[in-house]
């Protein structure tokens, strides 16, 4: 694929590591999180914190089902969402009680993580180059370069990356860059007892996700849907894809995220026009005759 502004900022980009300058890159790595087998044990959250030395970030009681972690952030790189909501019993699925119960309560768990976007806004807007694309196609912050400008924080369309206030720099999931370079599975996937979190080559994971979706649909789980699997989506496909059992926003995921840099070409053009506008306008202001 030719490296043009358009292909580098939106749409499918199969050679993401090569486009970032790696001559010979290993297969792109990612996560497939199959929420249909998540039991909400939070082993992933704990394993991530342990392996990555992520500090404790408050022990709050939220009242939001079993979720006291609340959201991804600088000190939470895996977050298990607990969706607990009433459903009319008629919507219950027979055969396994997979997504509901006869009492009319739907209980969904999903372990969220950085999407390691194909077109990662955090990386695109980072002015120092602290955020970079690894040879595995993942997105990682170089902590010795980050100067805490915070630009990546509002740029991420999923609200993943954040600043650690007392430190000043930004932090997020590295997809265990230090493990996968040694053929080790990332800590969260390693600790997951149900294989809800699967790690591997992104191409394989996409196939696995599609198969799993087919199986579930055949079993009558009609709400099952994939999230982040399509290279045609707004971020060119995520490196971390999900199988969800409800619409994405129920889990706190944006339903149709688009990388902001897709529109940056037009923004630069308009900035240029506006700058010329100031020059012309000011010249006009001096054109009048002096009193």
């Amino acid at each position: 694929m030719s490296r043009t502004w358009v292909t580098l900022t939106s749409g499918p980009e199969p050679t993401v590591a090569e486009d970032a300058g790696y001559g010979q890159a290993p297969a792109r790595k990612g996560f497939f999180t199959d929420t249909s087998v998540c039991i909400g044990c939070k082993a992933c959250e704990v394993a991530c914190k342990e392996w990555n030395h992520v500090p404790e970030d408050g022990l709050t009681f939220t009242g939001n089902s079993y979720d006291n972690t609340q959201a991804l952030g600088a000190d939470t790189w895996r977050h298990v969402a607990f969706v607990e909501r009433s459903v009319p019993p008629a919507l219950d699925h027979d055969g396994g009680g997979l997504v509901g119960s006869r009492e009319g309560v739907q209980w969904l768990m999903s372990s969220d993580v950085c999407k390691h976007c194909t077109h990662a806004a955090c990386l695109d807007v980072c002015p120092t180059g602290a955020l970079f694309r690894t040879e595995f196609g993942t997105v990682v912050v170089q902590q010795d370069v980050c100067n805490g400008c915070g630009y990546c924080v509002p740029a991420c369309p999923y609200g993943v990356i954040d600043q650690r206030k007392e430190d000043g720099r930004v932090f997020k999931c590295t997809l265990c860059y230090d493990r996968i370079g040694h053929d080790q599975t990332p800590a969260c996937a390693k600790a997951c007892p149900t294989e809800s979190i699967q790690y591997g080559d992104l191409d394989d994971l996409r196939l696995r996700a599609a198969e799993r979706l087919e199986t579930l649909q055949a079993q009558g789980v009609t709400d099952a849907q994939l999230y982040g699997e399509s290279p045609d989506d707004g971020v060119g496909g995520a490196g971390a894809l999900f199988l969800l059992l409800a619409e994405p926003e129920a889990y706190g995921l944006p339903p149709d995220p688009v990388v902001t840099t897709r529109d940056l070409g037009r923004m630069w053009r308009d900035v240029g026009l506006a700058a010329v506008g100031i020059a012309v306008g000011l010249a006009g202001a001096f054109a009048g005759r002096r009193p």
């Binding site: 939220t62 939001n64 979720d67 609340q70 959201a71 952030g73 969402a81 969706v83 924080v153 509002p154 991420c156 369309p157 999923y158 609200g159 993943v160 990356i161 954040d162 926003e249 129920a250 889990y251 706190g252 995921l253 944006p254």
Partner: peptide, 8 residues
């Protein structure tokens, strides 16, 4: 998701 923000 419980009215929580999606974005940062």
């Amino acid at each position: 998701y419980y009215g929580a923000p999606i974005l940062k």
